[in-house]
Write a protein that binds this DNA or RNA. Structure first.
Lengths: 183, 183
DNA sequence: ATATTTAATGAACAAGTGTACAATAAAAGT
DNA sequence: ACTTTTATTGTACACTTGTTCATTAAATAT
């Protein structure tokens, strides 16, 4: 059975209202009450679907990360020439993705937000690397640990990128990563 | 001028009450009201010092991380023999530190907690690496980016360690890190 | 078209939040 | 010891939170 039209209608209204409010104020200053007023949705209805505003945002985050996953379907155009074979381009699309959704990732990387958002990103990158790594290394190595190590290294660059207010281009971040991988 | 005795008294009472409550329930289920009742501190006084329960925990986290920083004063006894010179032992004390405060780090790495705790840890490790890295590499390299990259790689292991319920020993984590560094 | 299922609504409730301010009490300075 | 400074307390207020439940309305199924 498909989802009830009313459900998708209210979820859409809430998402829309959240995005509008985020233009004016920070995520954790948005109350359930004002969100529901903006969305013209009953407060009880909100609680039926999400428990807190953070969960609504997480819902939206998942759709954005779906776009990251999807990007691996099409060929990648941004790999610097020096890359080619050593570094699997798979690991490197993340920076263009973050650049594309920059206003969004300013929130994801902000201090007051729950750690769960970071974990969503971590999971995604770790899984991408897991697929890649399991082919290239011996089987006696702990794949979970190695992929966690490599995935989070990349996210470390993303964190620093955010801290420097995204002043570098995604291209530059790619080149940085390639350089560090060859150290 | 030193801090007022009354201030340290109330802060101590609040910290003590928080630690007791954390034995029974999760951080974000602890209300300001019940915390203040347990600490026998007026609710208004709490708001004068911290704005939310999370900030009180952060305060405590800082003292624990001070212990990590201090550990670099004394010689390190846990370095596997294979390490010696390639890997600076500086980077590797983190796992014994986390092991020592394990119940605490279960909270720090839990999903609902603010990202700021992770950043505190990240800052600490990044700075330790910065000091080390600035000696060993060319000056044309972006030290902030490289240290962010390396620091977060290590924290990636910590995240995965937490996810696997800390089943490995700190020694094992050290060996894993050494191995990954030589790949 | 109609009946059935199920989601959204509105109202109401106890509890917690965040803030303000005058009154009190405890440190610090002399 | 006494005065001054400053933190804590108690009370109050408007507001938000999270939950419940009967009522209404919209979508699905026949």
């Amino acid at each position: 059975m498909k989802t009830d039209l009313r459900v998708s209608k209210t979820k859409e209204a809430l998402r829309e209202a959240l995005l509008n409010l985020l233009k004016q104020k920070s995520l954790n200053s948005i109350s359930v009450t004002e969100l529901c007023q903006a969305a013209k949705v009953n407060r009880g209805t909100f609680y039926a679907h999400y428990g807190q505003v953070e969960n609504l945002f997480e819902d939206y985050f998942r759709t954005i990360m779906k776009d990251l996953a999807d990007s691996y379907q099409e060929p990648y155009r941004y790999v610097p020439s020096l890359l080619s074979k050593d570094v699997n381009p798979v690991t490197i699309r993340i920076f263009h993705h973050i650049e594309k959704y920059q206003p969004f990732y300013r929130i994801v990387f902000s201090k007051t937000v729950p750690l769960s958002y970071y974990y969503l990103l971590f999971d995604e990158v770790q899984n991408l690397i897991k697929n890649d790594v399991s082919e290239h290394y011996n089987t006696d190595i702990d794949i979970s640990m190695l992929s966690a190590y490599q995935a989070n290294a990349i996210l470390g660059l993303a964190i620093e990128w955010h801290r420097q207010d995204f002043r570098q281009s995604a291209e530059e971040m790619n080149r940085l990563l390639v350089r560090f991988l060859s150290l």
